[in-house]
Design a protein around this nucleic acid. Structure first.
Length: 473
DNA sequence: TTTTGAGTTGTTCGA
DNA sequence: GTCGAACAACTCAAA
């Protein structure tokens, strides 16, 4: 009888292309475990939408593991030590995480286990290039995306080829009826939001690969241009699967490369590069989720306005493009990338609310909420990041809507009360003549809100505030 | 060593 | 109606 080893699933909830799991299978019978560790979720608590996703992802993984996955909610070191003792385990395997606080936790766990004669084996299962392998020739980290990607990533060793499922996986038979997924209490109790969310997705490793195949056969062919149009099916929608490791970036990278070489494919690969860049930034800036990368933004006169924030969160700003995005987020746990930029710019540069509010709301509502990507992207749109959007780049929700959702298909999908409004006014209902509004069955302020701010005036206020920051320096 | 041009995603204004 | 300039400051990397 082969010895028992522990495989600790973390952000790699899959069997294929799983380097540490493949190693573990060669060493012995697998005890597969998952540990819910809220203490190390980042800001103290995992977001609501990711909890729902996690519940379904674990359920699917449990099935793929012959109903043998053991789930725990406690300090990982206690769980690991107890299990090792009970089952005479001498080897523990996992794929590495890259958030600074998780790396610190894992270092502690590794040294504690090693002190008791247990070997820990870790591998890279979730990034194309580990953050410490990409640096400038002078040894310091990159701060600008393009050189990071072109000079750093593309000149480094290419991402490894994906592995297949471990051929001979033997699962240890451990009866432990208490350690169920349900006991983790991941689903919200009070309302049906979590159920609605889950209907929009096939939350499994198989579902991830179906999504990839759909994208490769349809979306990627028009990706470079098409990705900007939220009503069109040209984005991959792989982000939540990547977030939970139900598919690996290596699997996605090589599947796209196999299609050949053109501008659409290159552009898609560079989006995987942005994911790497976010991890790179977080690795080198532990305070990325909470502190402005550019300290002068600490003096920015952010407003506090609970009413405006609530209007933004619930999709009631009166700007259809913004509201459609926020409602898509609430209903599906997802938002199209172009629209994320529009709502982000609107929060920060029109409502003048701190990007923290947006970062927290996205953290709670997005099924793909990832600490590195979320905080790096909010700093980017707010203009305080390392390689940020210039402060004067303020998205106009009307112009953006007319450009990227010209017929208002996207808006009407998520704001059905506007569905009879002619395309001419779909992004600016308050400009429609009263007869037109009446014919469309809309009374502004009743069926759909009046604009809560004037974009022209608020944009100017933001620009003035930014200009003041500059002068004070 | 210093200089120089470029850098994901935009808007407005005036000629 | 179209088009170029202006809207910062700073990092990076090639020359």
């Amino acid at each position: 009888m082969k010895q028992k080893v522990i495989y600790w699933f973390r952000q790699d909830l899959r069997l294929s292309d799983n380097p540490a799991l493949t190693q573990a299978c060669q060493m012995g019978q697998i005890i597969p475990i998952y540990i819910l560790d809220h203490r190390h979720a980042g800001d103290g608590k995992q977001g609501g939408a990711t909890c729902v996703w996690l519940h379904h992802a674990l359920t699917s993984l449990h099935q793929d593991l012959d109903q043998k996955l053991l789930c725990y909610q406690a300090d990982p070191i206690d769980i690991l030590q107890t299990l090792c003792q009970q089952h005479q385990v001498k080897h523990v395997y996992w794929n590495r995480c890259y958030e600074p606080w998780r790396m610190e936790r894992d270092r502690d766990i590794k040294s504690t286990l090693q002190a008791t004669g247990i070997q820990v084996h870790s591998d890279n299962g979730s990034v194309l290039w580990e953050p410490w392998t990409i640096q400038k020739t002078d040894g310091t980290p990159f701060k600008v995306f393009t050189p990071f990607y072109r000079k750093g990533c593309l000149q480094a060793d290419p991402p490894r080829q994906p592995l297949s499922k471990p051929g001979a996986m033997v699962l240890a038979d451990i009866d432990n009826p208490k350690n169920t997924i349900d006991a983790l209490n991941l689903l919200p109790k009070k309302f049906k939001w979590g159920q609605t969310l889950a209907t929009h997705w096939n939350i499994s490793e198989k579902g991830a690969h179906n999504q990839l195949q759909t994208f490769l056969s349809i979306g990627i062919k028009h990706y470079k241009e098409g990705r900007n149009f939220p009503a069109k099916p040209y984005t991959s929608q792989l982000s939540p699967y990547l977030r939970f490791g139900q598919i690996s970036p290596n699997q996605v990278w090589h599947a796209a490369l196999q299609l050949g070489n053109n501008a659409d494919i290159d552009h898609f690969l560079s989006e995987l590069g942005w994911r790497e860049f976010s991890y790179h930034l977080l690795y080198h800036n532990h305070q990325l989720p909470t502190q402005n990368l550019q300290p002068k933004f600490d003096r920015f006169p952010w407003q506090e306005d609970a009413t405006k924030l609530a209007a933004w969160q619930t999709g009631n700003t009166g700007y259809p493009m913004v509201d459609a995005g926020m409602r898509q987020l609430w209903q599906t746990g997802y938002m199209h990338n172009r629209v994320r930029m529009i709502v982000g710019s609107f929060l920060v540069k029109n409502l003048l609310l701190h990007w923290h509010h947006g970062e927290r709301w996205f953290w709670d509502c997005l099924v793909d909420a990832d600490m590195a990507s979320n905080s790096a992207s909010w700093q980017w749109i707010a203009g305080c990041g390392a390689d940020a959007a210039p402060y004067f780049r303020v998205f106009n929700p009307i112009t953006q809507g007319q450009k990227f959702d010209p017929e208002g298909q996207y808006v009407k999908r998520f704001i059905p009360e506007l569905k009879h409004l002619p395309g001419e006014f779909i992004h600016c209902p308050w400009q429609a003549p009263s007869l037109v509004l009446k014919a469309a069955g809309i009374q502004l302020g009743h069926h759909y809100p009046e604009p809560i701010v004037d974009v022209k005036a608020s944009r100017q206020a933001a620009l003035d505030a930014f200009a003041a920051l500059k002068q004070e320096q």
